[in-house]
Simulated assay, not measured.
Amino acid sequence: MATSYLLVDGENIDATLGNSILGRRPHPDERPRWDRLLTFTQDTWGQPAKGLFFLNASSGLPMAFVQALRALGYTPVPLSGTAEEKVVDIAIQRTLDALLERDDDVMLVSHDGDFLESIEPLIDGSRRVGLIAFEEFRNSGFTPLVARGMEFFDLEHDTLAFNAPLPRLRIIPIDEFDPQQFL
Rank of each mutant, 00 (worst) to 15 (best):
S4I: 10
L6T: 10
N12M: 08
N12W: 07
D14I: 02
N19I: 07
S20P: 00
L22A: 03
P26A: 11
D29Y: 04
L37G: 12
L38K: 07
D43F: 10
W45L: 15
P48Q: 08
F54G: 04
G60I: 01
P62K: 03
F65E: 13
A68G: 12
A68V: 00
L69T: 06
A71Y: 03
L72V: 00
P76F: 01
P78I: 09
E84M: 11
E85P: 00
E85H: 01
E85G: 01
V87C: 13
D89H: 07
D89K: 05
Q93I: 13
L96Q: 02
D97L: 12
L99C: 05
E101F: 15
R102N: 03
D105P: 04
V106H: 04
H111M: 00
G113M: 03
L116G: 13
S118C: 08
P121N: 10
D124W: 01
V129I: 15
L131P: 06
A133P: 08
A133C: 14
E135S: 13
E135L: 05
N139R: 04
S140N: 08
S140R: 15
S140G: 11
G141Y: 04
G141H: 10
T143P: 00
P144K: 04
L145M: 11
L145C: 04
V146D: 07
G149Q: 05
M150I: 03
F152Y: 14
T159G: 13
A161W: 05
F162V: 05
A164C: 01
P165A: 14
P165T: 10
I171Q: 10
Q180C: 01
Q180Y: 10
F182M: 09
